[in-house]
Simulated scan of single mutants.
Amino acid sequence: MNSVGERLKGERVRLGYSVRKFADAAGVATSTQTRYESNENVPGSDYYNRISTLGAEIFWIMRGEKEDDEVRDKRAAMYSPDVRALIDDYQLCPEAVQTALRTLAKHTADFRRQAIENFNKGDKE
């Protein structure tokens, strides 16, 4: 399996999905999934995030190399269980909900940054 599309198809088959069921679970049209597998289109990061929740080996699909256990364990250890659960939940949300959550997080962080900046300015005056 030399191409991304071939490896993507191999992962779908390994996981036991038909094209239609995999496309549905990944949030794309069946025709889009077929184009990905035939290398006519290139999937985006949102797609890869969604299929990772199905058990697809993204490192293998994108690089053609298996990720060793040590690298996988280090990557998993980067996040606390709460953060990992948050990421997993986020990835299962529809695209519109993901967009709303990103917007909410950005506005909340911006508000918090501004509050900290204003507080720190008060200390200097």
Rank of each mutant, 00 (worst) to 15 (best):
R7C: 11
V13C: 05
E40I: 06
A115H: 05
G5P: 08
E6C: 00
A109Q: 10
V4P: 00
A29G: 14
T30E: 13
E65T: 08
N39R: 03
L8T: 10
S3C: 06
E11P: 02
R14E: 05
Y17W: 07
E37W: 10
T32A: 12
A100S: 06
Y90V: 03
A105D: 06
G64M: 09
Q114H: 13
V28G: 03
R7I: 11
I116F: 03
E65F: 10
G64E: 12
D123I: 15
R20M: 02
E95F: 00
E67F: 00
A96G: 02
R113A: 14
C93M: 15
V4R: 10
L86Y: 07
D110A: 14
V97H: 01
D88K: 08
P43L: 01
I116W: 02
V97T: 06
M62C: 11
R72I: 05
K121T: 09
Y17A: 04
G64D: 12
K124C: 03
Y90C: 00
L104R: 05
S45G: 12
L8H: 09
F119W: 07
T99Q: 13
R63L: 15
F22W: 10
Y48H: 10
E37P: 01
Y47C: 05
M1R: 08
K106Y: 13
S45T: 13
T32Y: 06
T30F: 04
D89W: 12
A23R: 08
A29M: 01
Y90F: 15
I61C: 11
M1E: 09
Y90W: 08
A96V: 04
H107R: 14
R20S: 12
R35P: 00
H107Y: 14
A56R: 05
A85I: 03
E57Q: 15
T103V: 11
L101S: 01
L54H: 04
A100C: 01
R113S: 14
V13A: 13
N41T: 07
E11S: 09
D82S: 13
K66N: 08
D69W: 09
D68R: 15
K9S: 08
A96R: 03
T34M: 04
A100M: 13
Y48R: 01
H107W: 12
G10V: 03
N120I: 11
R113T: 06
E65Y: 10
M62G: 06
A56Y: 09
R14M: 07
K121D: 15
M78C: 15
P43C: 06
T99C: 04
A96E: 13
T103P: 00
H107L: 15
P94V: 05
E65P: 00
A115Q: 14
Y90G: 01
G122A: 12
P81H: 08
K9L: 10
Y90K: 01
R50M: 02
E57T: 08
K74Q: 14
Y17F: 15
D68I: 09
A56G: 03
F59A: 10
T32K: 11
N2Y: 04
